[in-house]
């Protein structure tokens, strides 16, 4: 894979193998995610997509029994031996398959990450909260009840709250892990619009089980299957049938999965 820009890749992964205990969850992955692109990862359940995201922000250290081999570079920095992984994680926003509104007020949900970074000034926090909620297309619905519990919002609202929280981190890169599972189609479309805008300022990795969503949004796509990265390629080319492995076209065309 030849980098098409001069900047170093956002993430560069070489020969990555992920294990839980001794059981491999994903093996032999090599790929690069470039600055300001939406990079798609598609594949059926248990392909290793979520595990892949987990090692990228080094959540393996917080997960019992999880380990990886191979090299991961973030902005050219090898993440294996970093001492302060909390600082690394604070630069990466993550949105989960199932929305997680923390049992704090909506305001505190979004102000959580800025406060971690030491921002305590009310005016500044207000500004971040409003901006993040607006960009996540949630501000209008909640602006009058910022004190109510984030964990009691509806599923679709909680998912947008999670996105607002990720944005409040002012992240370098955003991970979205099958975000539309718990969200209605209208909200999904709204969030997709937001992602296209966000692409201007940050890199996005979009894990999805909806191949058409990958097609709509991503420039390049990796296809994971049963713990293996089958191939990485330009999304459009892939959907046009230009694949190296027949399993990819089988999956894209819905013959399994």
């Amino acid at each position: 894979m030849v980098s098409q820009t001069e900047k170093p890749p956002k993430f560069s992964v070489k020969d990555l193998t992920i294990r839980y205990g001794t059981t491999p969850a994903l093996s032999g992955v090599s790929l690069e995610v470039e600055e300001n692109e939406i990079f798609g990862i598609i594949g059926p359940a248990n392909a290793g997509k979520t595990s892949f995201l987990k090692v990228l922000n080094r959540m393996d250290t917080m997960t019992e029994g999880m380990s990886y081999e191979g090299e991961i570079e973030f902005n050219g920095i090898n993440t294996r031996k970093l001492r302060n992984l909390y600082a690394l994680r604070s630069r990466i926003g993550v949105v989960f398959p199932l929305p997680v509104g923390l049992p704090l007020s909506i305001y505190d949900n979004v102000a959580f990450s800025p406060r971690l970074r030491g921002i305590n000034e009310k005016k500044r926090l207000d500004q971040i909260v409003e901006q993040s909620l607006t960009r996540a297309a949630l501000w209008d619905e909640v602006k009058d009840r910022l004190d109510s519990l984030g964990s009691l919002l509806s599923g679709g609202q909680q998912q947008r709250l999670t996105i607002a929280r990720a944005l409040s981190q002012d992240p370098d890169i955003l991970f979205l892990d099958e975000f539309s599972i718990a969200v209605d189609p209208v909200t999904t479309m709204r969030i997709e619009d937001v992602l296209v805008e966000l692409k201007q300022e940050m890199t996005i990795i979009l894990v999805t089980n909806l191949v058409q969503q990958a097609r709509r949004l991503t420039r390049r796509t990796a296809f994971f299957l049963s713990g293996e990265c089958v191939e990485v390629g330009e999304t459009e080319a892939m959907f046009a049938g230009d694949v190296k492995d027949s399993r990819t076209s089988d999956y894209i065309e819905g013959r399994f999965g």
Partner: peptide
């Protein structure tokens, strides 16, 4: 940028 990042990630706060 890379240098400050490297420093941030490698410094115990």
């Amino acid at each position: 940028t890379k240098a400050t990042e490297q420093l941030d990630f490698d410094r115990y706060n």
